[in-house]
Amino acid sequence: MKSYILAFLLIVGFSACSTGPHKAHNRGVYMLIDTSGTYTKELDKAQQIINYTLSQLQSGDSFVVASIDTGSFSEKDIIAKVSFSDRPSQANQQKRAFQQKVKQYIKGVKSSAYTDITGGILLATEYLNERDTRKKTIMIFSDMKQELKKGYIRDIPLKLEGFEAIALNVTKLRSDNIDPREYMDRIKLWKGKVEKGEGKWEVINDLERLDQIIKE
């Protein structure tokens, strides 16, 4: 009888442990950086956001920074990715290394001719679904104007159930100043796409509100 009880307790204990580490409590953040045209000038702000995000993430969380260029649905566009160690001291080392990697990338970045935002989002969903994190956040540092190269097919419905898409620093283009409806339409278009895919949509242009990004 005792052995049965012991076995039962062990099973319960192990099952409780096995559900643990990466499945139910960690966060996954995927940040897409627009490198098209003149938007590369804004990359300093992107680095600030990355640094802030790094300071907020904890052991067990995942963070990926990828660029948006002509064809973003490719692992080659991933600038840096990391899953933080269980040990806080090691996680801190990883954060330092990550920061350096991003810094080097931003120093030598070359602007691309086209902007494939959808491809980047598709890659992000794929990655975060694979990581199976509790909270999935896709941060899009872009003016949200998609320009696809001829032949690229991106008319694909997004599946963003359980995702939160945050558009950061959506700068107003010169044409937006002439007709603000263009800006509003752009935002509306992406909001519609995300919400159609059952995801949550948010726009944060004021970087003072960075604490809103990685909120619990």
């Binding site: 643990g20 052991s59 969380d61 269980d86 040990r87 996680a91």
Partner: peptide, 19 residues
């Protein structure tokens, strides 16, 4: 509790609580 994360890991959960 914080330094314990160095010993048993900071992202391991048991029954909804950090180990």
């Amino acid at each position: 509790s914080r330094p314990m994360q160095e010993m048993v890991g900071g992202s391991v959960y048991m029954m909804g609580f950090k180990v």
